[in-house]
Amino acid sequence: MSLHDDAVLVLKGYEGEYEGQDGLRGLYLDHLSAHPDAMWKSCAAGHLTASALVIDPERGRVLLTLHKKLGMWLQMGGHCEPDDDTLEGAALREALEESGILGLRPLAGGPVQLDRHAIPAPCHWHLDVQYAALAPAGAIERISEESLDLRWFSYEEAARVADGSVVRLVERTRAALEGRNTP
């Protein structure tokens, strides 16, 4: 199965319980249908990306990266690569590359949320499929070349430094961990 096929299956199975998520799911599926190259950075109409919020629920914190190009505190993530077999695998690969943390485990249940955001030309959109990754006990992070900084934030601190998309991702990840829904 190709990464494109995996993305279609993941999105068809994504329940999108939060406001606007079902519409984004439909937009992503339409984009995949219209663009055979929708998984790759070369797709100028926009492309799918994969990201993962690294979370340490035992200590009530998340690991965020200060993105080098954007100057914003974000979850780990980026472009899919030809060796990626699944979206979840791409998200975990990105989380490992950007955090240096070995032994990350995906939060069960698939993507936590979808987020579509504009990026500068020549491409116009990132259609991000956002997962959560559980950090093992005693995890030690290591900054990568892609970051200006890498830091653990309490849930409350993350809400003060990150944008709305990351704040929603943190809230929805916490809700998924607790087995409940949140806006």
Rank of each mutant, 00 (worst) to 15 (best):
S2D: 10
L3F: 07
H4R: 13
H4F: 12
H4K: 12
D5C: 02
L9Y: 14
V10G: 09
Y18I: 14
G20W: 00
G23W: 06
R25W: 02
G26D: 06
G26A: 04
D30F: 04
L32A: 05
S33G: 14
P36F: 01
A38G: 10
M39E: 10
S42H: 09
G46I: 06
H47C: 08
H47N: 15
T49Q: 11
A50Q: 06
A50F: 00
R59E: 06
G60P: 08
V62P: 04
V62R: 07
L64F: 09
L66H: 15
L66V: 08
H67V: 03
H67F: 03
K68N: 05
K69N: 11
M72L: 13
W73T: 12
L74C: 08
M76S: 02
G78V: 05
L87D: 07
E88P: 13
L92Y: 14
E94V: 07
A95V: 10
A95Q: 11
L102T: 13
L104K: 15
L107T: 12
A108W: 05
Q113W: 00
D115E: 11
D115S: 08
A121Q: 15
W125T: 13
L127A: 06
D128F: 00
D128Q: 13
D128M: 10
D128E: 15
V129D: 12
A137I: 00
I140Y: 04
E141L: 05
E141T: 03
S144G: 12
E146P: 06
W152C: 02
S154W: 00
S154A: 07
E156P: 04
A158N: 11
A159V: 01
V161P: 08
A162N: 12
D163W: 06
S165M: 13
S165V: 11
V166L: 08
V166I: 15
V170S: 03
R172H: 15
E178I: 02
G179C: 02
R180P: 08
N181F: 14
T182M: 12
P183I: 06
